[in-house]
Write a protein that binds this DNA or RNA. Sequence first.
DNA 1: GAGCGATGTATCGAGCTGATACATCTGAAG
DNA 2: CTTCAGATGTATCAGCTCGATACATCGCTC
Lengths: 197, 197
Amino acid sequence: MTGSRNGVLELAVLGSLHENPLHGYELRKRLNTLLGMFRAFSYGSLYPCLKGLLTDGLIVEEEPPDDVVLGRRSKIVYKLTAEGKERLQELLTQAGPSSWEDESFGIHFAFFRHTEAEVRLRILEGRRSRLEERMENVRTALARTRERLDSYTLELQRHGLESVEREVRWLNELINTERAQADKSQSERDKRPDSDE
Amino acid sequence: MTGSRNGVLELAVLGSLHENPLHGYELRKRLNTLLGMFRAFSYGSLYPCLKGLLTDGLIVEEEPPDDVVLGRRSKIVYKLTAEGKERLQELLTQAGPSSWEDESFGIHFAFFRHTEAEVRLRILEGRRSRLEERMENVRTALARTRERLDSYTLELQRHGLESVEREVRWLNELINTERAQADKSQSERDKRPDSDE
DNA sequence: GAGCGATGTATCGAGCTGATACATCTGAAG
DNA sequence: CTTCAGATGTATCAGCTCGATACATCGCTC
């Protein structure tokens, strides 16, 4: 482990490259599409990250097919190595503050398809507590504030709180769905312990 | 103008100090309460900003009342100078990208009480176009994506888009309210051009 | 055959975050 | 009365990220 990279970015890159090899420009567009309204990565962080992953042997430059060998070297396509896949699995297994903070939750969620059900649940619940904790802080800070706030400030607070409450409800739905699925597949296993399909 | 400070932070600090003098710690808490769920400033940006404002003469350290003179020097209370107030007015008059981006919109909104009606409208409309533009980008990027996305990614997109749509509706309401008030006070002025009460 | 916008790699200065250090004040527990 | 914990308070730093910028190539049109 040479470089101590940004975690979030590392997951984003490894996760994207796992689906199929990409070059920098493409990678950036894809990530920013994937994350939609949540986040945008810049080259200033992407390229250093790729460089670090290269030196750590988690990714390699892909050889172009033989017939294009003629000195052309414009795109640099990266793909995962075995170590890279291992590292990705490791990252996908972690559920901790670094997976439910604002900047990172979106990435982790976007790769839920590759994440174990139990880890998914812990991340969703962690995110929910994080938001609830934040609301609690705001509410008590607000209550301690002596001076009345003007109507614009109040409206801003109200809107902010409402947005977060909505996200919590969204998380609740997701958590319920996850639990239902877990129960279902559990009882499937109970009913017919060794048949599949 | 010695330092080219961060604009947003500058507005935040000058605006807060305009309401009443504060010291660093208090200033930070107040700002983070004010902005609720939107933003949090750190000391690493606050103190350098205060330093810059000091050297530019926009704020000064307030003298403690005489009876506490005895060498005690723990708190450093800052207050606006005349130049600082002028600069604040200037910042409050500007409506531009720097007032409707994610990081800055909240601050500008929080000080709308001190902002002219016309500027308020332009900022709200600018914010709205910004969000609509972003949604447009995401939608076309999504349409261009060949490969179908898995259900988690889709759900993330859906949630993100919905959140932004909600914010646009919120902005619409605010804009309507502002317009109605502007019309009302306009017709007041028309009806009785020189009476006040 | 030249002009142009999209594609593509890469770097840099400015500025922010999160951590950390350190001092003081207050109140509660022993 | 002392001591200890936690809030208050000022301040800095390494590491990282953003936004701008530079520069080259590709494919397209006029």
